[in-house]
Write a protein that binds this DNA or RNA. Sequence first.
DNA 1: ATGGGTTTATGATCGAAATCATAAAGGGAG
DNA 2: CTCCCTTTATGATTTCGATCATAAACCCAT
Lengths: 225, 225
Amino acid sequence: MNGGFSLPLSKDDIPPSDVILGKFLIIANVIPEALLEAQGAKIISLPKDSFLFMEGDMAQHYYQIKTGKIKMVNHNDDGKEFVQGYFEDGQSFGEPPLFKASHYPASAFGFKATELYKLSREKFLNLLRENFEVHLQFTTKLAQRMMYKAMMMKEISSHDPEHRILSFIDYIKKESQAGDKPFTVSLTRQQMADLLGIRVETIIRSVKNLAEKGELSIVARKIIR
Amino acid sequence: MNGGFSLPLSKDDIPPSDVILGKFLIIANVIPEALLEAQGAKIISLPKDSFLFMEGDMAQHYYQIKTGKIKMVNHNDDGKEFVQGYFEDGQSFGEPPLFKASHYPASAFGFKATELYKLSREKFLNLLRENFEVHLQFTTKLAQRMMYKAMMMKEISSHDPEHRILSFIDYIKKESQAGDKPFTVSLTRQQMADLLGIRVETIIRSVKNLAEKGELSIVARKIIR
DNA sequence: ATGGGTTTATGATCGAAATCATAAAGGGAG
DNA sequence: CTCCCTTTATGATTTCGATCATAAACCCAT
């Protein structure tokens, strides 16, 4: 999953559920910290439950998580939220608008207290210029996220909650590299709902149905497939 | 929209509607043809109404359209289709799975008879390696498509057909760089339906509603905003 | 251990988009 | 011009997820 880099991730102190939650959508474990520091990246702190930037803001900086967890999220008019993704240690987020100096399509929210590297747009582009391997690595991660979004769009468009849920679980299972081994979903049903654009109640009911059909099993409320 | 390159696009023989249709989702006018040829790209022909590759196939080649039009599309079990995007002259498509040697998340369909450059994965990556500007250009286009998908996911998830339609039209209007000038949507209602994951009838009714509300106007069945 | 907040659960009702059916209008090829 | 196919249009009906309401189970902090 790290695609070549061995960053000092030290996930030992993170509870298992979070590791799994992070597994999928860990999509851009991008730039070695040494390189960021060499370019002059600053380290900043984002408190839990606060926003780093809001949907619509102009993108000026590259951000990469040192430790913590960020939720990229859209809020529609009636307050409902749609989660574009979660990002954790070593991952970057919110880079797409950097390239054309445009605005963020979603807000960045501190799901946990988070420490981040912050690098100006110019220095970021410079870093890519001077480092083909990092650039390629970055593009690769972007491409992966792209495919995730393509998959989700297809699923979301053909609304059938059960199908959506299964595809989603299979995707994160694959990401987790669990192989054939039973895979435990560590997301809450609410989190799945926000990622899939479905109400919690519907998730709960659909999951139960899927369990009855034998497509997955529920043990101690956890979803296993 | 071309972002720096002036490719010999010669769109003169393409009717206006197609130019406009192509305007949006023209997102990766990527590699100068001279470079492709230098790397040894072959030119192949894809007949109208045929598939170049299918969802699930392993990605082995980089494709860039010389002339014609490609539709990237998913088919769900009951035959309904979801269109990920249209691509035209000068654009590339289906590149994300190239980076990790994985399979296509959607099928490529000849919306018109199309001539394409075809380049092996290795040579494509090589080309990026040797050409920072092209690589950056490519990443930029990928980032743009990414943002389009993020926007669409958010819209699709918060189902309100009218809202979705307006956001979509505003997006393609912006892409077309029409500014404040009235913008005529050149997509059929069916095409909009397939791009938005809504039924045609719903599009028709919603558009009519929006016209009554004054959000847009319909002239000779064409949607103007 | 206890209390408060979250997560899971379940039933009842509603509503909006999908579906089904049918037809008129437009457009292109010969 | 005419025929045929696509696109737009409109009404009737159905369906399934959203919504509302309520409560049990669980978990964590003090």
